[in-house]
């Protein structure tokens, strides 16, 4: 299978502050690709570059073998990149169903009726079907995170970007989330998943990349990456001088 995403020597940042420097990686189609790294290592910036919220100053991003470095965000969404927000941002005054409906209408360009059925499917997949007529602003955290995923699925993406969907959840809830992600993988989505909880990543990703200071420091099999000295140093603070 081909690569769904390729980053080629990306430099990017906000204004004059450069965050990503020479970041390169590839994600194969159908993979769950985990990204870890300490705070400020550029994980979210990488997502923003992939989503088109910021423009790289150098390098190129390929999605499905098409250069999308200069494509505006809503076109990227139509092309098949769906995202979740780290802190859920539902349309609070609208029902759960409407939230997903918007994604299905505007993310794909299909008619509202067709989109309605697609939205129902997305809600069933994420386990929100029973709560579809509740106001999304009234949902508890786990369901808000689910809604983020449902909305991303609603846009019928080929690639899902999950930004810390398990952060802030209880252990039991994290298990629910991992099950959900596994279900998504099985239904054929490629996934890039940013997370801090290493145990979660270990259990559910196919490949793992660790970022630090804006570039990829190590990439490979999850077990290997986590056991590597680099990651141990970054996360456990084992200092070279000691």
């Amino acid at each position: 299978m081909g690569n769904i995403v390729e980053f080629r020597h990306i430099d990017a940042g906000y204004g004059r502050i450069q965050i990503l420097s020479d970041l390169s990686f590839e994600v194969e189609e159908g993979q769950v690709y985990g990204v870890i790294g300490p705070n400020g290592s550029g994980k979210s910036t990488m997502f923003n570059a992939l989503l088109g919220i910021i423009r790289p100053t150098a390098g190129a991003i390929y999605f499905d073998n098409i250069d999308i470095t200069r494509t505006p965000p809503h076109i990227r969404c139509r092309m098949g990149i769906g995202r979740t927000f780290q802190i859920p941002r539902p349309f609070e005054h609208m029902s759960v169903y409407e939230n997903v409906l918007i994604a299905a209408v505007h993310g794909t360009g299909q008619s509202e009726k067709k989109a309605g059925y697609a939205a129902i499917d997305a809600l069933k997949l994420t386990g929100l079907y029973e709560k579809r007529e509740l106001l999304s602003g009234e949902l508890p955290l786990l369901d808000r995170k689910r809604l983020e995923v449902a909305r991303a699925i609603g846009t019928q993406p080929k690639l899902l970007l999950l930004d810390e969907v398990a952060a802030g959840l209880t252990d039991a809830e994290v298990k629910d989330m991992m099950k959900l992600v596994k279900g998504l993988k099985d239904s054929g989505y490629s996934i890039i998943w940013i997370e801090h909880i290493i145990q979660t990543m270990l259990g559910s990703t196919d490949r793992l990349m660790c970022m630090a200071q804006g570039s990829s420091v190590i990439e490979g099999e999850p077990q290997e990456v986590i056991n590597s000295k680099t990651v141990q140093t970054l996360y456990l603070g084992v200092d070279d001088n000691e």
Binding site: F85, R89, F91, H93, I102, E112
Partner: peptide, 24 residues
Amino acid sequence: TRVGLGLTAMRDDITSAASVGVNI
């Protein structure tokens, strides 16, 4: 209409709206 759906989404959260493909 679908435009209205997009507008209502923009009312609640413009960043989210852009991320689900609403052409702001």
